[in-house]
Design a protein around this nucleic acid. Sequence first.
RNA 1: GGGCGGAUAGCUCAGUGGUAGAGCGCCUCCUUUACACGGAGGACGUCGGGGGUUCGAUACCCUCUCCGCCUACCA
Length: 916
Amino acid sequence: MPPAADMPKAYDPTLSERKWYAYWDEHGFFGASNDPQDKRPPYVIPMPPPNITGTLHIGHACRTTFEDVLIRYHRMRGFNALWTPGTDHAGISAQVVVERQLKAEGLTRHDLGREKFLERMWDWRRQSGDRILEQKRTLGASADWTRTKFTMDPEMSAAVREVFVRLYEEGLIYRATRLVNWDVATQTVLSDLEVLTEENVEGELYEFAYPLEDGGELVVATTRPETMLGDTGIAIHPEDARYSHLHGKFAKHPFLDRRIPIVLDAELVDIELGTGAVKLTPAHDFNDFASGKRHGLEEISIFTLDGKMNELTGEFKGLDRFVARKAVKKKLAELGLERGSKKHLMTLPKSERSGTVVEPIISTQWFMKMEPLAKPAIEAVESGATQILPEDWTKTYYHWMRNIQDWCISRQLWWGHNIPSWYCANEHCIVQREDPTKCPQCGDTQLRADNDVLDTWFSSGLWPFTTLGWPENTLDLQKFYPAADMETGYDILFFWVARMMMMGIHFMGKPPFKRVLLGGMVTDENGDKMSKVKGNVLDPLDVIQGATLEQLLEKARKAGASEGGLKYLQKTYPEGFIAYGADALRYTLLSYSPQSRRIALSVKRIEGYRNFCNKLWNASRYALGVLEGSDAVARGERPVAKLLINRWILSRLDNAITTANQGLESYRLDDSSLALYHFVWNELCDWYLELTKPLLNGGDAEAARETRAVLVHVLETVLRALHPMIPFITEEIWQRIPKQGVGEACIVASYPQPDPQLRDELAEREMTWLTAAISSARGLRAAKDIAPKVPIKLTLEGDDDARRALLKAEANAIATLCNATVQLGGPTGDVATATAEGVAVHMSLEGLIDTDKEKERVTRELAKVEKDLTLLEKKLGNESFVARAPAEVIAKDRARVAELTTARGKLQDALTKLAG
RNA sequence: GGGCGGAUAGCUCAGUGGUAGAGCGCCUCCUUUACACGGAGGACGUCGGGGGUUCGAUACCCUCUCCGCCUACCA
C-alpha cells in the first residue's frame, strides 16, 4: 500500500467516492471488495433496490446512519448482520406532494382524472426513490440485507386483501355510519391522527335568539352560525333555574320549517359557559352528535362533500360554508334575532393533507376495532418482549394504547389499496378474497365495487410480515420474523410502530421486533421543524458534496419554498456549503443523544467533525511517516510495552474501546463516538504523538522500536473502532497501514474488544503527573509571555519518591515538549512556581525582569488552593460527615488536603521570594 | 383539562448523591519539522425559584414559574 507520501496534506472530504463493499457467503464469512462490479456469488446487493420511496428529509439520513453503524458493528463482531431495515412506506408524503403540485397548477385530482393522477403518483415515487437511493449510497449505507418493498407492489396488495378479509370475518373490521372528520378539499375522511389543530385562532362567539313556540326566546351562542341550519335541538342544564321551565317545550327555527325540542343534558351543558343554552347540530359536531343520540334527535346534514350548503338549507343552498356563515348572520340580524358577539380564542382543526378546516360530517365508513388488538400490544411491551428505547416513550405508548379509539380505515383517495368490498342493488355488502360475480344474499349480479381505498398506515402496519411473503409460510418469514431492531422517529410511534405491533401480534402470534429504537426529529439549528416551504431543509447531499447558494435556491424553489423560505436560505447560508463529506455528517448525526427529541442540526457542528476527520488524517500521516522503512507491523494483538507513554496509550486505548463497545451495545452511539473522539484528539494526538517524538529521535533503538510497534497497533486498532461511524476515511487510511493477518478490509475486519487485563493503572497515574508537569511549565511560559522559541530553565520537584522517580525518568520528554532544560530539586534563585497533582514546577526567572504580574498570578493560584482547602477542611471537620460518609470518600478528601497543603506551602514560599 | 418531556457556560446540549462537562463561540500568544480544518494558555456557571430527605443535592421527593410536544375539549 502506498505510504504517507501520497497522502495530501489536508483531508479530502470527497474521498467517499472510493467505497468498499462487504459480501458474505452461506457460511456467514464476510469478504470485501472495492470494486463495485465485483459480483462474487452470492453477492449481496449492498444497497436497497431502486423501487423504494419516501420523503426527502435529512431525518432519513439520521436513521440511515444509525442503522448502518449498527450493521457495520455487528458485521465486525462476526455476527451475520442480517438486517431488516425500516421501509419507506407508500403513502402520505407522495399524496401530499402531488396534490400540492396540482394545486400550484390550479388543478385538483378530479380535473386530472384517476388514471393520469395515478401515473403522476408513480412518477413522483420513482423520482423520490432514486433520490433516496442516492442519499443512502452517498452516506455509505452498507446493508447486508435489505427488505424494502413498496407497499403498492401487487404481491403486497394480495396480502393486504387477505388481512382485511380475515379481520372482517373476525368481526374486527366493520362498517358504520358515524360522524367523521372530513377534508372538503381532497374530499376524503381523515383519521384522528391526520387532523392537526391550530392553536389560539381568534374566533367569534356569536349569540342569537331562538323564538319559542309559546312566546319568548332562548339565546344560544356559537362559533359557527351557519350550523344553525342543521340544528335539531337546544340543550339546557337540568339544574339551571333560568331555563328549567322550558324543558319539553319547543323553539321555532327562524328560517326553516322546523320545531326544535328543548332537552336537558347535564353532560354537555356547562351552566357558566356562554348563555347556558346549547344549540345542537348532531350532524356536524362530535358533542352534539353524542347528545343527539342520547335524546333521539334528528341528524340533518347541511353540507355537500365539497363544503357547500346542500338542498336542505333553503335559500342558502350552494353557498360556500364560510360565505353561508356571513349570510346566516345577516339574515338573523334582519330578523332582529342577533344578540351580540364576543371575541373568542379557540383551536381550529385542520387537515394535515390540505390545510383546510376539517368539517365533521355523517358518513358511512370502514372502522377497525382497536381495543382487542391493543391489549396484547400493551402486554408485549410490559413483559419486555418488545423494548422501546429510550424508555421514556413506553409511558407515552401505554397512554395512547390504553385510550385508543376505533380507527377509521377507509379513505376516499385514489392512491392506495382498494377495499375488497362490493355492493349489490339492495345495498348488501360483500367482503371476500376473490372478486364476486353475484350477491350471495339476493343473487344480484349488478355489483358495484367499493371505490374507497385503505388508509396508508393500514398496509404499512403489515409491513414486517407482508414483505417476507406472508400469507405463505416462506423461509424468509421463518428466518426474519421477528426482526431484532426497528429504528425510526418518534413522530410515527402511533402512526406506524403501534400499528405494526398490533397487526404483527395478531397475525404472527408474536411482536414484530425485539426493540424499537426511537430517534429524535431532525430540525434546523433553531429547533424549527424542517419544511420545504420554510426553506430550512438541509439536504444531506448538499452537506456532503457542497453546494453553492444558487444551487440551494434553485432546489428550494423547485420544492415549493415560499419567498420567506428563500430569504431564510440566503441569510443563513450566504456562501452555500463547502463539502463536509459523508463521514463528518455521519459523525455529527451520531453525536446527538438519542434521548433528546430534537436534533437541532448545526452546520458548525458538522464542520467540527470534519475538522476531526482532518485531525485523524494528519495524525495518520505522521504515524505512517514514522513507520516508513521500519519493520513495525500491526498484527491485531497488543505489543509488549515497557515505556510509560506506550503503556499509558495502550491502557487509554482499551478504555476508549470499552466505552465504544458499551455504547454500541446499548444504542448510545453518542457515547461511543464521543469516547473515540476524545481518545483520538485529546490523548492520542495531544499527548501520545508529541511524546513519541523524543523517543523516536532519542537514539535509543529499543525504545524507538517499541514505540513504533505500539504506534502502529494503536492507530490500526482505533481505525477499526471508528470504522462503523466514519467508514470512508478509516478504510482509506487503514488500507495504507503495514499489517499482517487482520483481514482484507476494515469493513470486514473484527471490532476491537475490551480486555480489563490491558489496563495499566500505574501508567495512567504516572501520566497524570507527567502531563501536570508539562502543563504547569507551559502555563508559566504563557504567563511570562516567553516565546515558544526561547528555551526556559525548569526545576522539577515531586511530593514523594514515586513522583520524583517519574520526573527523573521523563526529564527528557519534558525538556522536549517544553523547550526547556530540566533539573530536579527545590527552587533556587528567582523562580516562578506552579503546582498540580503533587508536582511543583519552578521556572527560572534569571534574565527576566520580575513583574507584579507574577505576584498577581501566584496570589490568584494561592487563593484558589486556599479556597479548596477551606472547603475540604470544613467538610472533614464535620463530625457527621466523618462518621457517616464512606471511608474511601474520606480518604480521598484527606489525600487531597495533604496535596493542597504542600502546594500552598510552595506557593507561599514563592510569594515570599517575590516580595523579598 | 389530561399526559409526557425540558429548564446546566454566550449558543447547542451531555452528565452525575461526593467541590460541574463537551462542541461551537470569546480573549491572549504562536506559522514549531502530522495537522492554522492547527498548537499552547485563558475567561465564563448561586446546574429555573422555594421547600424537604441526606453527613453531603445540580442530581432523589414535593411545590411553584416558564417552555416544548402529544391528547381531549371549548355552545
